[in-house]
Design a protein around this nucleic acid. Structure first.
Length: 502
RNA sequence: CGGGGCGUAGCUCAGCCUGGUAGAGCGCUUGCUUUGGGAGCAAGAAGUCGUCGGUUCGAAUCCGGCCGCCCCGACCA
């Protein structure tokens, strides 16, 4: 097996061509593929199950923090979007516009839009304006506040260049929209939801994230402040994995969300919005996967375990399948994290052994259990771990009793590995020269640079031009240490995090 | 939106320059031998060559229009 073991399931490898590797991992894992519709992807069952698991966990977290789900229209009248000036500026270029309501068959045998709409409809790029419109009707008194609503939806942003999961014209997400009586309460909500996202990223995705605030240039259009979580991918680029916006009274003024306070004064509400999207799946892929394909954290994997029957001769089929079925039943009865049952696949497809094994490696399933005639005789199972590649034979009973602790260990191991990678590629950088050097050495360098920075937007433009580097966030720090900006020498309150980004 | 490239079997592509019966690899189907980390042999199915028009006895091949896709530059969860 000497030469065979060198072959990787995914070509090219991460080192050879990272973007192409990413595409190939998704293809090999059957997460998604490009569709005939420009910029829009098809999410396949294995990928969609992953999304459903993310939804399940996040939805529970949202409800535990007092939110309820609702649904608002896909279409937004153009005039609504026009209400908030910065919002318009931010989104206008990427809006899909519906202008007609009917198709008629022309003499050329083709369908033509026939009936122009009085007012064009925008396919939502985000729903602040339409939701604000409804909130303005629902809010009269301070007794109507807060409103804490989330929606699971699709949105459309007409992007020029798209990449599966990371940036597609249509994507799935959740958007929370809340309205509050006081500024302080809205701020608290903004921070709370960022904490929810960070909790989810760290403890379910096993993806370490930095929490912080966006600079003016990276802020959500129309927001007073945008908070974010930022993760490092294996190519050392940053991925914005979630955002939580403090909108101040900007959208309340635009949508006329007013209420009478307990003192009888008419006031504008304070609003927030926050979201994560199917982009998280891209982040998951790029955080953990290796040159043999996807690696999934057990807590979010569509299934934790696949059982692979080994049937050398037809006479083995009955006993082996029986053993597999009984093991599956026993494993499925086990409760694991959040009282969820373990999810177990039994792959009895008529494929050769090696091919079948590799298909599951590429799909990133945490544990593979092979059961053949020899195992039946010895009462053992053969277990392969996706995270370490380790393969061991152990007694069936031992496996059943240890399986949840093995999964916990894998979950922790992935998180630790990702955090160590990030930390190894994070530096405090204290001079302009060192900064440029850090980001210019394409192959060996790059990563997160923590540097003092005085915050001029022109400076950010310059760095973006020179190095494609931007401020990812102004991190939340316990004791920010003041210093001087490495570019201008002006005083700086704290270090900010720079990186190349997706 | 500017620059470059490409449309031929399910996929990746050759054939085009120099017009003459549509090709390969992978995948798929069937059979036999195999099966504990990517099997071997044999047989088979599969394409109006993106589209519309022109030149020609004859066009995947030459010419023109159109459509679609990919890559590179300014924006983004």
């Amino acid at each position: 097996m000497g030469k065979a073991s060198k072959r990787t399931a995914i070509e090219p490898t991460r080192e050879q061509n990272y973007p192409e590797w990413y595409q190939q991992v998704i293809k090999a894992a059957e997460l998604a593929e490009n569709s005939p519709v420009r910029g829009c992807m098809v999410i396949k069952p294995w990928g969609y199950m992953l999304w459903e698991n993310m939804q399940r966990v996040l939805d529970r977290m949202f409800k535990e923090t007092g939110h309820k789900n609702a649904y608002f229209p896909l279409f937004i009248p153009k005039s609504y979007l026009e209400k908030e000036a910065q919002h318009v500026e931010g989104f206008a270029k990427e809006c899909a516009v519906v202008t007609h309501s009917r198709l008629e068959m022309g003499e050329d045998g083709k369908l033509h839009p026939a009936s122009p709409l009085e007012e064009p409809l925008i396919v939502r790029p985000t729903s602040e304006t339409i939701i604000g419109e409804m909130y303005s009707k629902w809010v009269q008194s301070y007794r109507d506040l807060p409103i804490l609503i989330n929606q699971w939806a699709n949105v459309v942003r007409w992007e020029m260049r798209t990449r599966l999961f990371l940036r597609t014209a249509e994507f799935l997400w959740q958007e929370g929209h809340t309205a509050h009586a006081t500024e302080e309460e809205a701020w608290e909500e903004t921070r709370q939801m960022l904490d929810v996202y960070a909790d989810f990223a760290e403890n379910y995705m096993a993806m370490p994230v930095l929490k912080g605030e966006k600079t003016e240039g990276e802020r959500f259009p129309g927001a007073v402040s945008t908070l974010c979580i930022e993760a490092m991918m294996q190519d050392r680029k940053a991925l914005q994995a979630g955002t939580s916006h403090f909108l101040g009274q900007n959208f309340a003024k635009a949508s006329d969300i007013k209420f009478l306070s307990d003192a009888g004064e008419l006031q504008y509400a304070w609003t927030t919005s926050w979201g994560v999207s199917t982009r998280l799946i891209g982040g998951l892929v790029m955080t953990h996967s290796d040159d043999d394909g996807l690696i999934l954290p057990p807590r979010l994997a569509p299934s934790q375990i696949v059982i692979l029957p080994v049937i050398p001769k037809d006479e083995h089929r009955g006993p082996v399948m029986e053993a597999c079925e009984s093991l599956r039943k026993e494993l499925q009865a086990i409760h694991w994290v959040d009282e969820q049952h373990l999810s177990v696949e039994l792959d009895d497809r008529d494929l050769r052994g090696g091919e079948k094994v590799w298909s599951w490696i590429k799909k990133g399933i945490p544990l593979r259990v092979e059961i053949g005639p020899r195992d039946l005789d010895s009462g053992s199972v053969f277990v392969g771990r996706r995270d370490t590649g380790e393969k061991t034979s152990m007694s069936r009973d031992e496996f059943v009793s240890k399986v949840t602790s093995i999964l916990d260990e894998m979950q922790d191991g992935l998180h630790r590995r990702a955090r160590e990678f990030r930390d190894a590629n994070t530096r405090n950088i204290d001079s302009r020269e060192a900064f440029y050097e850090f980001f210019k050495s394409e192959d060996t360098g790059g990563g997160f640079a923590w540097s003092h920075y005085s915050g001029e937007p022109e400076l950010e433009d310059q760095l973006k031009q020179d190095l494609k580097v931007t401020v990812r966030c102004i991190p939340f720090e316990k004791d920010p240490e003041p210093g001087t900006c490495i570019f201008t020498g002006k005083p700086s309150r704290q270090r900010v995090v720079f990186a190349k980004s997706y």
